[in-house]
Design a protein around this nucleic acid. Structure first.
Lengths: 156, 156
DNA sequence: TATTGTTATACTCTATAACTATA
DNA sequence: TATAGTTATAGAGTATAACAATA
């Protein structure tokens, strides 16, 4: 093994770099924690959203989670095929599907929450409750920022 | 537009969810900020590493940035083809390539840093210097955590 | 025997354009 | 005319296995 005593240097001062690395570390551990459950980050998020917003359609969920309509199709298909959610034609809008959890979906969600709580506890083991709350708050503020696209995307 | 008054509910309490969203927001704005520069998050990171660790090989850089050896090949090719870095057979290890920045690479890095500094200022506009430092510190601590894989991956 | 760089490959994720059926 | 869902597709990003040259 050659000497790996290289420094990240300037990258260390970039919040974006650390965000990328931290999110990647979380994804890796999340995936390991969910092994055998049949759920991933995205599908868990969708399942969780359906559970708390019974009857909403996939478009609305995709909008909240920033998932393209086109990409939602396969994701919902996946959850339906696993028997975790059900599609039913919406009563007030026959273009849309009303989504609800099946009993198996409820059970899967309970199991997933247990796994994920353990995963978060593991990743944040050295964080005080105060630090954890602070981190969540700072991150939530970043999410709300508009990207450059909304400012000057008119040219080009 | 159907009513989108749905809540993220339980997801709101998950640091992993916010990390994912925040990293995604940063990526979007980063990409827009680098438009026309020919650099992306990964290639900028590599360029930055080469600049601060002249002569190191691609394996060492990949190890630090968590990029697979196999995937480094195309990335280095890309930077070489753009004339930003140069490969030279390592004097002490003829298997390896010693990487250095070209003058064009130096210039590209200066330009990139300007764009990225503006990007970070924009994304963290409402953050005090103290908050920004706190965020970077908390994220850096997450990066250092070992994934579940290192604990109990022995069983199938 | 281990490591550097390489090729080939495959799977996931994300983004866009165009279609249909409803509204 | 706009929206919900769909299909097809393409580009990133990421992961593994196997090989040649060198250590």
């Amino acid at each position: 093994m050659a000497r790996d005593e290289i420094e990240i240097g300037a990258l260390a001062s970039l919040v974006g770099y650390h965000l990328r690395r931290a999110a990647s570390a979380f994804l890796t551990d999340f995936t390991a924690a969910m092994d055998g459950s049949g759920l991933r980050q995205v599908t868990f998020a969708i399942l969780s959203m359906v559970a708390e917003n019974r009857g909403t359609n996939q478009g609305a969920i995709g909008r909240i989670l920033s998932i393209q309509r086109a990409n939602m199709v396969a994701l919902i298909d996946e959850l339906v095929e696993k028997g975790l959610i059900e599609r039913a034609v919406d009563r007030t809008d026959r273009r849309a599907f009303s989504l609800t959890l099946t009993p198996a979906g409820e059970a899967a969600l309970v199991d997933a929450r247990k796994r994920i709580d353990a995963h978060e506890r593991r990743m944040l083991a050295e964080f005080s409750p105060k630090e954890r709350a602070k981190l969540a708050e700072l991150l939530a503020r970043i999410e709300r920022r508009d990207p450059i696209a909304s400012e000057d995307k008119a040219e080009g």
